[in-house]
Design a protein around this nucleic acid. Sequence first.
DNA 1: GTAGTCTTATGATTGAGGTCATAAGTCGGC
DNA 2: GCCGACTTATGACCTCAATCATAAGACTAC
Lengths: 199, 199
Amino acid sequence: MIPEDILLSFPARFLNYKKGDTIFSKGNYPSYYYQIRLGEVKMNNYNEEGKEFIQNIFTAGQSFGEPPLFIDEPYPANAVALSNVELIALGKDDFLKMLYQHPEVSIEINRSLARRLFYKAVMAPEISSQDSNKRLKTLFNYQKGHSNATDGPFTYMVPLTRQQIADLTGLRVETVIRGVKELEKEGYLLIRQRKIFLK
Amino acid sequence: MIPEDILLSFPARFLNYKKGDTIFSKGNYPSYYYQIRLGEVKMNNYNEEGKEFIQNIFTAGQSFGEPPLFIDEPYPANAVALSNVELIALGKDDFLKMLYQHPEVSIEINRSLARRLFYKAVMAPEISSQDSNKRLKTLFNYQKGHSNATDGPFTYMVPLTRQQIADLTGLRVETVIRGVKELEKEGYLLIRQRKIFLK
DNA sequence: GTAGTCTTATGATTGAGGTCATAAGTCGGC
DNA sequence: GCCGACTTATGACCTCAATCATAAGACTAC
């Protein structure tokens, strides 16, 4: 996350989107650095059959969509507001100027890209596996690890619908439903009022 | 890629590894920035059943293993020499000092992390798909798109064995062998002396 | 040149996830 | 309070990648 006073001095501006709005689309070339002040944004793709794949869900304080700013490529996915969101956006040229003038900001961006690569590296071997329950566990472990919930067993509720879980893991809704039931039998998680709680 | 004269001034040093040597292992904490002068390096994991997953293959001019230098995490995968390799290595503290003093180098590192994230973003939706031939096509398209081959149809040879393709896509060797044969029938690629050529 | 390993190849079998159909529970908007 | 859309759920069937077995071609080291 880059301090807002630095961003504003370059100058960045505020943008508002309503739930469901598209912030940018796959294939577009990037014009802005985006950082979330409020709300949630998902990055997703649709394959030929119309099946959704969610790359990532970003929350307040996180930036998204930087990679194409550095290389000469269009966005590989869409960005869609999951709630009403408030963004701070800085134009591409100003963004690069900022990195030249503020080495510590450039390192902070490196840090945030490094963090994302690190988790992709952790997830990729499991996601590529054929075993559906392993995919589910990997996602759940990631979710839990990135929450602040440390209140003891079965207090962390997965804030995702079965469909979203399916889209994040590349599985089908039915497979997710059957999978979480199996994982409950194994004692890996708990289902209360259809919500999933992790140990 | 960072210019060698800058690296040497900090000061970096040269390292040599023989084919098959391990450069670092999963779980180690990082001490160096590595850049390849000569040869190839793969980053890989093994799952519980011993199945290999190749995160990436790096060639001359590329750097690897930077993410853990920025965040306080151990390497999420191993780095293994695929051939005899000559590396240039710069200690962690000197590396960070260099980024502060040379903003353009910091941006270059951002660029290389961005390139890798982009690759992961392109691959993830297809890798998660159940359709094996789609996984293969995605890998091949990426390979082709990032080579310098623009000499017309079927001149780009995929520089990977069937096993490496399997480990990069999370499939089994047999599935890859059958898949590329199907893709040849479709006219998507050509097999000559067991080598795969892309249109 | 020869042994040993890696790579490519092919057939038979099987099991797990996808697909399709159907339905009940839940939630939001009017 | 009702309607419609979404979410969760369950059964039956099917498809296709994994698995296991076997073998031939290619390459590497000695």
